[in-house]
Nucleic acid binder design. Structure first.
Length: 556
RNA sequence: GUCCCAGUAGCUCAGCUGGAUAGAGCAACGGCCUUCUAAGCCGUAGGUCGGGCGUUCGAAUCGCUCCUGGGACGCCA
């Protein structure tokens, strides 16, 4: 329970007591009391619309209800300094904010743990994200998925869930054959042979790199080899190469997975047939046209889906069902998958599978990451994986930097299309929100260094007397909200609220910094109190940035 | 054709469970550095929340409908 929550609960309890005392409603009739933060400061620190909600039960006008409620309210008990009734019946509370200074010792003690809560109650959640095919470079869509998935995982972890990050390696399907054939073509071409690329071949630069590596290591050894043998070798070689590259790119992007799950392992460990049998047993499958079908329409899909094609091979769906069964067998209570927008049509059948396996459809949550459009010099940069001309994650890391990418990709709610402005991300100016936030952190660091040099030390004994100015209170309130913001963002899978939060906090810091001098030799007590506040802000900004995967520099 | 996402200030976007005069940032305009980093701060201006109908004390938010943009609809993965 945080200090802010304790205060809010106290206020809610007093409101409830007042309602009963004024005989406006019985305890059972009272709806959940909602405290909201008014946008305007003249509307107090908190407001409630309970008088409007009670209008029907009490059969009175909202304003009248509000008046009777306020009359019975124990203002002292709820730390209220003033109550107003406004508008159609809002009750506005002005709180004695001295309780806020109690936040500082808590933050300084918890340090890098500040913000963590236990709201998730240790629930086991698995997050599968990126899961790009090991057939080419990671592009912008993957970068967004990586940022959003990783930050969501960080948030869930901080909110007390037990999180596992997993990458599903699609190393078993047709695309891997294509990879082998593409490498083969590039290898032969590199040695001067006229050799066609396969129709759905991969045209990326990475394939040329692999071919070059092969030529360097083996010269023309493979030219005369049996094509089947050659392709098998290239397949393994290419897969290893691509996977190593994926892992390196993601690690450099500060995204680390707990588990790399291989699709092939499902075949090797014979996990697919048992899953298939289970669906058969439960009566969800049938034969038609030489194929085996899964009756997903039983679960609201608009069409049944094929599990085994009439050539005897599986569709993509079949091992994926086995994979998700495996996840559930591992004891995860919730599975969150981050998918690109192009997989949207796949959700219904996967949810059908989850239900057919005997779980509620809410067990699987699919978060769709909408497309990223890259803009440079005000123009849209065309992307195409097929021609290999897409901008890669690696290139963007080198060009705009990791901090800006991590921040920008999480900045917008992930179900909306994102315009990524390269010039803005690169710019080291006030247009760039990443710099704005980092600058706030760096400013505090410099300030603390100066304080040390001048012999000032933070002291927690003077907080209540010196931190109740408007700007300081704004900061304190924002600091106090941090744990709740994390918990809510985690629950709602809304990582973009974290960038919003830290931006607002930075803005309040800059505002405070300009309005009030921290180091003041004439006011030693005030200086000590403010230094403590600055330390608390520094910790909170750093913790927030850490959740997003952005560095908090000491100087800029 | 069916489904999904989006449409909010000139631009990019927030807006949580329906609440008060719809908010930020950038761009525009006007101020603030002999003083802890001006990569900053303060102020001004800017809106028919795509259109319409409905639900209600109250709608950007919920429902219906239409318009516009993007995406998905395979025995591909």
């Amino acid at each position: 329970m945080t200090i802010v929550q304790t205060m809010q609960d106290q206020l809610k309890a007093e409101i409830k007591a007042a309602i009963i005392k004024a005989e406006l409603a019985t305890e059972e009739q009272i709806p959940t009391i909602i405290l909201e933060k008014p946008k305007e400061k003249v509307h107090g620190d908190y407001a409630t619309n309970i008088a409007m909600q009670l209008a029907r039960v009490a059969k009175k006008a909202p304003r009248q209800i509000a008046e009777q409620l306020v009359e019975q309210l124990d203002q002292k008990q709820a730390s209220i300094t003033k109550v107003d009734i406004a508008g159609p019946g809002f009750i506005n509370f002005f709180i004695d904010n001295s309780y806020l200074t109690g936040l500082i010792p808590v933050i300084l003690t918890e340090a890098d743990q500040y913000g963590r809560t236990n709201t998730g109650l240790g629930e086991k959640v698995q997050i599968e994200f990126v899961s790009a095919n090991p057939t080419g470079d990671l592009h912008l869509g993957h970068a967004r998925g990586a940022s959003v998935g990783d930050t969501t995982a960080n948030l869930l972890d901080a909110a007390g869930y037990q999180v596992e990050r997993e990458f599903y390696i699609n190393d078993a399907g047709n695309q891997i054959n294509n990879l082998a054939l593409s490498i083969e073509a590039r290898y032969m071409q590199a040695l001067g042979h006229d050799f066609p690329m396969p129709e759905d071949g991969y045209h990326g630069k990475d394939i040329l790199d692999i071919a070059a590596e092969l030529v360097e290591k083996y010269n023309a050894d493979f030219v005369e080899k049996d094509p089947v043998e050659r392709q098998a070798f290239f397949r393994e070689y290419g897969l290893k190469f691509e996977l190593a590259k994926l892992k390196q790119d993601l690690a450099d992007f500060r995204v680390n997975f707990d588990n790399w799950f291989s699709e092939t392992s499902l075949y090797k460990e014979d996990k697919i047939k048992p899953a298939l049998h289970l669906l058969e047993q439960k009566g969800y499958t049938y034969e038609d046209g030489g194929a085996t079908w899964f009756r997903t329409t039983d679960f609201g899909d608009d069409k049944d889906r094929v599990l085994i094609k009439n050539d005897g091979t599986y569709t993509y769906l079949t091992p994926d069902i086995a994979y998700h069964k495996n996840k559930l067998d591992r004891g995860f209570k919730t599975l969150i998958n981050f998918w690109g927008a192009d997989h949207h049509g796949y959700i219904a059948r996967m949810k059908a599978a989850i239900q057919a396996l005997g779980y509620s459809k809410e067990t699987l949550e699919v978060e769709i990451i909408q497309m990223v459009n890259l803009f440079e010099n005000g123009e849209k940069v065309k992307m195409s994986k097929r021609t290999g001309k897409a901008v890669t994650l690696r290139e963007l890391m080198e060009e705009v930097g990791i901090d800006a990418m991590r921040y920008f990709f999480v900045m917008r709610s992930s179900d909306a299309h994102l315009d990524f402005d390269m010039d803005l991300a690169k710019s080291e100016s006030n247009e760039n929100p990443v710099y704005y936030v980092q600058y706030a952190h760096a400013r505090i660091c410099t300030l603390l260094k100066q304080a040390e040099a001048k012999g000032f030390e933070a002291d927690l004994n003077y907080l209540a007397d010196h931190l109740l100015t408007e700007k300081a209170e704004d900061l304190l309130k924002q600091l106090g909200d941090f744990p709740q913001v994390i918990a809510d963002a985690a629950k709602d899978r809304a990582p973009h609220r974290m960038t919003q939060y830290v931006f607002d906090l930075a803005s309040m810091l800059h505002s405070f910094y300009n309005a009030e001098k921290v180091l003041d030799p004439d006011e030693p007590e005030k200086t000590k109190a403010r230094l403590a506040l600055m330390q608390a802000v520094k910790i909170t900004i750093a913790n927030a940035l850490k959740l997003i995967g952005v560095n908090a520099p000491d100087q800029m």
